[in-house]
Amino acid sequence: MHLLYCDESGSAPDPNQNHFVLSGISLFERQVFWLSNELDRIAERFDPAEIPDVELHGSPMMGGRGIWQPFTKADRIKAIEDALHALAKSHPSNRIFACVVNKAKVSPFDPVEIAFEQVSSRFDHYLARLHKNGDPQRGIIIFDKSTYETALQGLTTNFRTLGHRWGLLRNLSEVPLFLNSKASRLIQLADLVSYAIFRHYERGDDQFFKIIADRFDQEAGVRHGLCERL
């Protein structure tokens, strides 16, 4: 089973932001425990007594908001970089799927729907590729609890039964699951990945993006894991 942990960066309705990003980290089920432990060790630096209370989220970490206020910017940035490096150095089967949408260019269409269609279909195609190569696997998409929950579950059902523009979702075991990010280090890591991608496209800042740039799904030199609707 492959699990795709997803989160977004950028606000779809915010007129002051040009881009919306949805990204997911695909992990084979046995990789989840190892990577979660790596992230726990990073969180432990900031509150050894209450490690689960330290949530790794890009925007508050960068801005020093909430629980991050007492810590230096250098320490906060190092934590983001170390979390992304944990993914970058992890098993080669762990890979990123993401869609970057320029909201003005796709208007009046919903950037969330466009991004989800791209990410889910590319994840599905990846699973189909594994199957073709003799490794039959099913997948589940896991999101942070968000205002998009009902819409995304409906979209997945439609894609599986009516199809999207490239066909049907054939390799997913269930409609998306939604978790509280506090309960999942991998949802938090997906947030950091989306934040890194968002800063790259929205602000031209590749400080974090360059760490994960080689982890987008690719085959034979073709990068399938990053969609740009710019």
Score class of each variant (00 low, 15 high):
residue 201 Y to G: 00
residue 199 R to F: 02
residue 168 L to R: 12
residue 174 E to W: 12
residue 173 S to N: 13
residue 190 A to C: 10
residue 212 I to L: 14
residue 195 Y to R: 12
residue 177 L to F: 04
residue 213 A to F: 05
residue 213 A to E: 12
residue 194 S to G: 10
residue 218 Q to N: 15
residue 179 L to N: 03
residue 171 N to E: 13
residue 201 Y to I: 04
residue 170 R to L: 12
residue 183 A to Y: 06
residue 213 A to Q: 08
residue 180 N to P: 00
residue 174 E to V: 15
residue 193 V to R: 02
residue 192 L to C: 06
residue 168 L to Q: 08
residue 192 L to Q: 05
residue 212 I to G: 01
residue 189 L to D: 01
residue 218 Q to W: 06
residue 190 A to L: 12
residue 219 E to M: 13
residue 185 R to W: 04
residue 191 D to F: 04
residue 171 N to S: 15
residue 211 I to S: 04
residue 184 S to F: 06
residue 211 I to Q: 00
residue 168 L to M: 13
residue 195 Y to K: 05
residue 187 I to P: 00
residue 187 I to C: 01
residue 199 R to N: 09
residue 195 Y to L: 08
residue 175 V to R: 05
residue 203 R to E: 15
residue 218 Q to V: 00
residue 210 K to R: 15
residue 163 G to V: 11
residue 171 N to T: 11
residue 165 R to E: 14
residue 181 S to D: 04
residue 191 D to V: 03
residue 167 G to K: 14
residue 195 Y to F: 15
residue 179 L to Q: 13
residue 189 L to H: 02
residue 212 I to R: 01
residue 187 I to L: 15
residue 194 S to W: 01
residue 216 F to K: 01
residue 185 R to P: 00
residue 176 P to H: 07
residue 207 Q to L: 14
residue 171 N to W: 07
residue 182 K to E: 10
residue 201 Y to N: 02
residue 179 L to R: 08
residue 198 F to P: 01
residue 184 S to D: 12
residue 169 L to H: 09
residue 220 A to D: 07
residue 165 R to K: 14
residue 210 K to P: 00
residue 197 I to T: 03
residue 219 E to V: 14
residue 219 E to G: 07
residue 178 F to P: 00
residue 214 D to F: 09
residue 200 H to V: 02
residue 168 L to T: 04
residue 181 S to P: 00
residue 169 L to W: 05
residue 184 S to W: 09
residue 179 L to I: 04
residue 171 N to K: 11
residue 204 G to A: 15
residue 201 Y to M: 05
residue 202 E to K: 01
residue 179 L to Y: 09
residue 190 A to T: 00
residue 178 F to S: 06
residue 181 S to K: 07
residue 177 L to G: 09
residue 219 E to R: 14
residue 171 N to G: 13
residue 185 R to G: 05
residue 171 N to M: 14
residue 212 I to M: 13
residue 169 L to T: 06
residue 180 N to Y: 08
residue 185 R to K: 07
residue 206 D to K: 11
residue 209 F to L: 08
residue 219 E to A: 14
residue 203 R to D: 10
residue 204 G to V: 12
residue 167 G to W: 06
residue 194 S to C: 03
residue 170 R to E: 14
residue 205 D to P: 00
residue 199 R to E: 10
residue 205 D to I: 08
residue 191 D to Q: 11
residue 219 E to C: 04
residue 217 D to A: 15
residue 171 N to I: 04
residue 179 L to F: 14
residue 189 L to G: 02
residue 183 A to T: 15
residue 182 K to S: 06
residue 182 K to H: 11
residue 207 Q to Y: 03
residue 189 L to I: 05
residue 195 Y to V: 09
residue 175 V to A: 10
residue 194 S to K: 05
residue 193 V to N: 04
residue 173 S to P: 02
residue 210 K to N: 14
residue 166 W to H: 12
residue 185 R to V: 03
